[in-house]
């Protein structure tokens, strides 16, 4: 496999990993809040969280483009840290936005599956709320959170519509698997396209195995 193709895989994995890590804490936090706390305007929050799943990815891309533009205040603020548009960071932001609902939903399902009575008994033993969360709730919600993380990672890996708008197609910088396959088909290089499809399948297979192992473990 050529260095160029390896580069595509590398960018893809980097973008998906950074995107997943970036949404991990806020996603788990929001999932916990939705499952356990009295969230004001819950329906509105849930709708907003789900929005990227419902909207066409290109529409999300356009919204992000607006957000990152130097004309908007987040854009000016982000520009202080360095350029975003047409960089791999923009690709990661697009992937993170698209994956966020999946992580939140997984975490929410995970936390909802933990019996509130078990948590209450832990409190009844005199444990602090923080200790109950770290030692009882979080480990028991692990399976749901993990499945959310894996789905989010998979979604980030396959992101196309929003990514191409904000990150463009720059070989070695923003060219992910999805963009790479599309570009090679456009260029008539079907061998290279198939090689990338093969690589995608191998990664998908590994993710599937990982998910299954996590599921078996949490069952045991």
């Amino acid at each position: 496999m050529s260095a160029e193709l390896v580069g595509v895989i590398w960018v893809s994995l980097k973008v998906a990993t950074v995107a997943t890590l970036a949404i991990l804490v806020p996603g788990v936090w929001l999932g916990h809040a939705l499952a356990r706390r009295r969230v004001p305007a819950r329906v509105l929050v849930q709708t907003l969280v789900t929005l990227p799943l419902v909207l066409p990815p290109v529409a999300v891309g356009l919204l992000l483009l607006r957000l990152l533009s130097p004309l908007s205040w987040p854009g000016t603020w982000l520009a202080e840290v360095g350029p975003w548009l047409l960089t791999w960071k923009a690709a990661a932001l697009a992937a993170a936005t698209m994956s966020f609902p999946l992580l939140v939903r997984g975490a929410e399902a995970g936390f909802s599956s933990v019996s509130e009575r078990t948590e209450a008994v832990a409190l009844g033993l005199g444990l602090s709320r923080a200790r109950v969360f770290w030692k009882v709730t979080l480990p028991l919600a692990r399976a749901g959170i993990l499945s959310g993380v894996l789905l989010a990672f998979a979604r980030a890996l396959g992101e196309f519509g929003a990514t191409i708008l904000v990150a463009g197609h720059i070989s070695g910088e923003t060219e992910t698997l999805a963009l790479g396959i599309y570009a090679r088909i456009e260029a008539g290089d079907s061998d290279a396209a198939w090689a990338l499809v093969g690589a995608s399948m191998i990664i998908a297979l590994l993710l599937g195995l990982l998910a299954e192992r996590a599921r078996m473990r949490s069952r045991a």
Binding site: R117, T118, A120, V121, L123, G124, L125, G126, R129, R131
Partner: peptide, 15 residues
């Protein structure tokens, strides 16, 4: 329930 009460509970269903 919470920390600092000096109370511990063993429920009927063990939990």
């Amino acid at each position: 329930a919470g920390a600092g009460r000096g109370v511990a509970f063993a429920p009927q269903d063990a939990l």
